[in-house]
Simulated assay, not measured.
Amino acid sequence: MADPSPLTSEEFRRLAEFLYRRTGMVFSEAKRYFVERRIAERMSATSCRSFTDYFAQLRNDERREVEELINAFTINETYFYREDYQLACLTTDLLAARLAAKRGRDAIRIWSAPCSTGEEPYSIAIWLLENWKEVDDYDIEIVGSDIDTDVLEAAAEGIFRKRALMKLSPDLVARYFHPLGDERWQILDDLRQSVRFSRVNLVDTRQTRLQGAFDVIFCRNVLIYFDDESRRIAAENLYENLLPGGFVCLGHTESMSRISPLFEVCRYSGAIVYRKPMELRA
């Protein structure tokens, strides 16, 4: 089949609006080449001869193709121990603050959203095992969520290439992964089973609520792809998914102070994080 014609301005607008409503991500004319390349791949995969035919297929709510389209447009740049100063802050400051606010031995819940192919939630698990002496004293639940179903499947499989492991020492790789050959390693089964994965759209309130309440949320390097309204909705959803006194960690270029007034800014020696205020006491 011949390559599809470039999108007209109206077709580009309709597609960008469709993606925005379902993901919160904004695609401007500046990203036209990226958009047209991805849409051409999906049109070829579905044997659609024109954008009109393809868009009609999407509008008819063919759920699997909507998922495939969203998967094609998500960006999954990640690796183990990325921005590890926040992992250090987790074990030196955040967990201590959360335990002080808890009663007894309540479970500790940590959410990685978006989690991409699993490097972040698995990094959290490894970091806790390596750097938190109380790790065996508590029931710790780590949840990884993403809107991209393909990366969630890859995350559950837990197979990684050399680049993903570049910040881990050879000793850590030897202890927590087993080699598969062809410069691929699979994370140990015990760690794979310690993380639960789920599909979540951060601007979908119903989907986020289903995940329950967390002590700490890592939501890094995704809000930069949203517009102001989508950021506000995502921030409100994160707020509702935090326990009182819980923390959210953003990427180093992101600031919750510019998005929502709901959170308190907490400046620790290693990181700036954002806290849901404790409930007022009578």
Rank of each mutant, 00 (worst) to 15 (best):
A107S: 15
A107E: 15
I108W: 02
I108S: 10
I108E: 12
R109E: 12
R109A: 15
R109C: 13
I110E: 09
W111F: 02
S112F: 07
S112V: 04
S112R: 01
A113D: 01
A113R: 00
A113M: 10
A113Q: 07
P114L: 11
C115I: 10
S116N: 08
S116P: 08
S116Y: 07
T117A: 11
G118Y: 08
E119H: 00
E120P: 03
E120L: 04
E120I: 07
E120H: 01
P121W: 02
S123A: 03
S123I: 08
A125G: 04
A125L: 09
I126M: 14
I126W: 01
I126S: 04
I126K: 02
W127Q: 07
W127D: 00
L128K: 04
L128T: 11
L128E: 11
L129D: 11
L129Y: 06
L129G: 13
L129Q: 13
E130Y: 05
E130D: 11
W132I: 10
K133G: 10
K133L: 13
V135Y: 08
V135W: 02
V135L: 05
D136K: 14
D137Y: 06
D137F: 11
Y138T: 11
Y138N: 15
D139S: 15
D139L: 15
D139E: 15
I140K: 00
I140T: 12
I140S: 05
E141V: 13
E141N: 12
I142G: 08
I142D: 10
V143T: 09
G144K: 09
S145Y: 01
S145C: 14
S145I: 09
S145T: 15
D146V: 06
D146A: 12
I147P: 07
D148K: 04
T149G: 03
T149V: 13
D150N: 12
D150F: 06
V151S: 00
V151W: 01
E153V: 05
A154C: 10
A154I: 12
A155G: 14
A156F: 03
A156Y: 09
E157Y: 10
E157H: 11
I159Q: 10
F160E: 06
R161S: 14
K162T: 13
A164G: 06
A164P: 00
A164V: 04
L165E: 05
M166G: 05
M166K: 15
S169P: 06
S169C: 07
S169R: 04
S169K: 04
P170K: 08
P170V: 03
D171T: 15
V173I: 14
A174S: 12
A174I: 01
R175S: 13
Y176K: 01
Y176P: 08
Y176A: 06
F177L: 06
F177Y: 05
P179Y: 04
P179I: 01
L180Y: 02
G181Y: 03
D182T: 00
D182L: 00
D182Y: 01
